[in-house]
Amino acid sequence: MQTQIKKPPLERAASKNAHPNLTRKYPPYGKKLDDLRRRGLVPAMRVIVTTDWKIGGAFPRIIITDDTPVTCLQFNYLNGLHVEVVHYDHDNHILESLITEILSIQPATLSAFNMDAVKQDKPAFKLIFSKSVMEGTND
């Protein structure tokens, strides 16, 4: 008796390799923002990127969790938006790669706010990138 071995279609394997985008994961609330963008909408307020679930509940936000490396997260929906990374000193190990990833998406502005610096009475706000200084003060 002869058995037939079924091979996967070639075009499926090729398309899987062609889009590394598909292997990236949405951080919590990321899909919600991407759904807005797909419908031609943008959030009315700046987007908060934070590692703490207790921060930024009144803003559109995404949460960076420990379970997925920053380089495996999808951020494309932040393109052209005002983005603020709100972090603590203990997040410093991911901060550089998080900022690099978000900058590669080309936000309108990117700033960082260190919660620990506030407690220590040090400057907490840092403007990292602004496409236009006037746009950066517009929300």
Binding site: A18, H19, P20, N21, R24, K32, L33, L36, R37, G40, L41, V42, P43, A44, M45, G57, A58, F59, P60, R61, T71, N76, Y77, N79, G80, L81, S97, S104, I105, Q106
Partner: peptide
């Protein structure tokens, strides 16, 4: 209470940049 996800219409520039960004494959960093 204000809806944090209240949205406004994207500008044509924002929309075209998003469309371009969404089709662009990410650089893979090791």
């Amino acid at each position: 209470m204000i809806d944090p996800y209240a949205a406004i219409e994207a500008t044509p520039e924002q929309q075209s940049a998003y469309a371009e960004q969404s089709t662009k494959p990410y650089k893979i960093r090791f």
